[in-house]
């Protein structure tokens, strides 16, 4: 049986592991810590001599708790995001995912675009009563349609919001400067239309982000080559 000194070393490792896993649901955290603890005990008992070197070798073979925690937290975050309604969590998850590869970048780009457009529609509906002559759906030269805030200049016109120019130009941000007359199309109808379009965009973006995470997210144990043997190195 391991003596107190060895048990203490294992307990210290488990405390570090538990602390590092604080972002993981408590049930899962308890299971992992308990299992790693049993693993360390059995590994140490199988050593011929329970020396300090042997103990520290066994503990270091278990891996750095912070690295293990990173893996767990990513998994927990993806699982939570796959069923979440929180735009913040979905944006945060797709941002973390974007740092790991192409699928994540695509997911983050579409999520930012969807939520960004939704936020513009909501914000315009909210601010229309305070800036009735500056916020609207604007028709500019070359059939450009812009939903947002107009800077009020007839020359050097700029609109901040969402702009579409046929056949295939789309801008989220600043459009302009453009020359020529600009006309508002909706008046106070902008308020209900902004609310409905904003809500639809938030809903569609949330559903898309959740589907994309479920289908292509790294938490899913599918058969793509990069996930067949995760975090494993080939030994000599």
């Amino acid at each position: 049986m391991p003596d107190d000194r060895i048990t203490q070393a294992i307990d210290q490792y488990c405390v570090r592991l538990r602390r590092a896993l604080r972002g993981v649901p408590s049930g899962e955290r308890d299971e992992i810590v308990q299992e790693v603890r049993m693993h360390l005990l059995e590994r140490i008992e199988s050593e011929q001599h329970m020396t300090e070197e042997a103990v520290s070798r066994v503990i270091s073979a278990a891996g750095d708790p912070k690295e293990l925690a990173k893996e767990c937290e990513m998994q927990a975050m993806f699982r939570q995001a796959a069923t979440s309604r929180s735009p913040w969590l979905l944006l945060h998850t797709t941002l973390r995912w974007a740092m790991t590869g192409g699928a994540g970048i695509a997911a983050f780009f579409v999520t930012v675009l969807g939520y960004g457009c939704g936020a513009v529609f909501y914000l315009c509906a909210l601010l229309k009563p305070f800036f009735p002559s500056r916020i609207g759906l604007w028709l500019a030269p070359e059939h450009t349609l812009s939903f947002g805030y107009w800077n009020g200049r007839l020359s050097g016109t700029e609109v901040y919001g969402v702009s579409v120019r046929p056949p295939a130009s789309f801008v989220l941000g600043t459009l302009g400067p453009t020359e020529g007359p600009i006309r508002e199309l909706l008046g106070l109808w902008l308020i209900p239309i902004g609310v409905v379009c904003g809500a639809l965009l938030l809903l569609v973006t949330t559903l898309f982000a959740r589907w994309f995470i479920r289908r292509f997210g790294p938490h899913e144990s599918d058969g793509s080559p990069s996930r067949l043997v995760p975090s494993v190195s080939r030994t000599a």
């Binding site: 592991l17 899962e28 299971e31 992992i32 299992e35 790693v36 693993h39 590994r43 073979a61 278990a62 891996g63 750095d64 708790p65 690295e67 293990l68 893996e71 767990c72 998994q75 043997v229 995760p230 975090s231 494993v232 190195s233 080939r234 030994t235």
Partner: peptide
């Protein structure tokens, strides 16, 4: 195949 042993329990989880 060798892996950081703690990682195994994360993957099994």
């Amino acid at each position: 195949l060798g892996l950081a042993e703690g990682t195994l329990y994360v993957i099994l989880n």
